[in-house]
C-alpha cells in the first residue's frame, strides 16, 4: 500500500456561513432510561477536522447517531443551516456521511459495488450517475477496481476504506467516523491517517487514538458522561494533564 497519496476526490461545498454543523443543547435518553446526552452544544466550520475523544459510554456514538437523524430528540441540530426533520431527512442523510466502527456492520452487501452503490441508489440517482459515483468514491479511497470483490474477502484495512467509500459516494459535506483506527495494525493505521489527512472534507471523528488526534486534528472535543467537558486547540488540551487525567485519557 502506498504511503503517500494524491487526493483524487473533489467535492463542491455550497455556501455555508461558517457553520456546516450546529448543535444546540442536545439531550437524549434511551428508552431504558439511560441518559446518554445531557446538553451538548457544538459548531463545526467548513473544512474543519475535529476529533471527538472521551471514555467509552461518554455519549460519543449517541451523538453521532443524531447527526443524520437516526436518533432524534429535543435540542436543535442544523446541518448546513437545515434542521433535521422528516422532510429534510433524505437530504440530511446525503449530507452527513456516517461511518460506523465495525466495517462488517457498515458493509452489508455481498459485493463492494453493491455496497458503495447503496447510498447513491437510495438517493434516487440515475444508473449512469450511480456508476460514476461508485468509481469516484473507490478512487478516493485508493481502491479502484475493487467493485467486483466480495466484501468478506477484504482485509480489515480494505474494509475500513470501502466503508468510507460507501458514504463518499453520496458526496457528503461532513464525514463522521466512529473510531476509524481501532483494530488496525500500525502500517494500515498509518495509511489511514495519511488518507484522512488528504481528504478535503469536513470531519468529525470519534477516537481513542490520541496520537492520531495530535497528528491530524487541530481541534479536539472531550466528552464525558453526556456533556462536552472541553473544546479547543488540540495542542493546548493535550498539555492540560489534569484535564486528561480526569477523563481517563492518556497523555501521548
Amino acid at each position: 500500500m502506498p504511503v503517500k497519496h494524491q487526493p483524487v476526490y473533489e467535492i463542491t461545498i455550497p455556501e455555508c456561513d461558517g457553520d456546516v454543523l450546529q448543535i444546540q443543547d442536545l439531550h437524549f435518553a434511551y428508552p431504558d432510561g439511560h441518559v446518554a446526552l445531557q446538553g451538548v452544544s457544538l459548531n463545526l466550520c467548513e473544512g474543519e477536522k475535529v476529533a471527538l475523544v472521551g471514555p467509552n459510554g461518554a455519549g460519543k456514538s449517541t451523538l453521532m447517531l443524531h447527526l443524520n437523524g437516526i436518533l432524534r430528540e429535543d435540542g436543535d441540530i442544523f446541518i448546513g443551516g437545515m434542521s433535521i426533520d422528516e422532510q429534510n431527512l433524505p437530504i440530511i442523510r446525503a449530507m452527513v456521511g456516517l461511518v460506523f466502527q465495525n466495517p462488517d456492520d457498515q458493509l452489508f452487501s455481498p459485493t463492494v459495488f453493491d455496497d458503495v452503490a447503496f447510498g447513491p441508489l437510495h438517493m434516487g440517482l440515475p444508473e449512469d450517475e450511480v456508476h460514476i459515483r461508485v468509481e469516484e468514491a473507490l478512487a478516493a479511497v485508493q481502491m479502484n477496481g475493487f467493485g467486483e470483490r466480495l466484501s468478506h474477502h477484504l482485509s480489515m484495512g480494505q474494509k475500513k476504506r470501502i466503508a468510507i467509500a460507501t458514504v463518499l459516494a453520496m458526496r457528503p459535506q461532513i464525514l463522521v467516523l466512529d473510531e476509524p483506527s481501532a483494530g488496525l495494525d500500525p502500517r494500515t493505521r498509518r495509511a489511514l491517517i495519511n488518507f484522512l489527512d488528504e481528504l478535503p472534507i469536513t470531519m468529525l471523528i470519534s477516537t481513542h487514538d490520541i496520537r492520531m488526534v495530535k497528528e491530524l486534528f487541530p481541534r479536539m472535543i472531550i466528552m464525558d458522561e453526556g456533556i462536552i467537558v472541553a473544546d479547543g486547540s488540540t495542542v493546548e488540551l493535550l498539555n492540560d494533564a489534569a484535564l486528561l487525567q480526569d477523563h481517563g485519557l492518556e497523555i501521548p
Partner: peptide
Amino acid sequence: RIYNAMLARGYT
C-alpha cells in the same frame, strides 16, 4: 447496527 448503517445511507 446494520439497520442503522442502512438508515444512515438513505434506506427507507
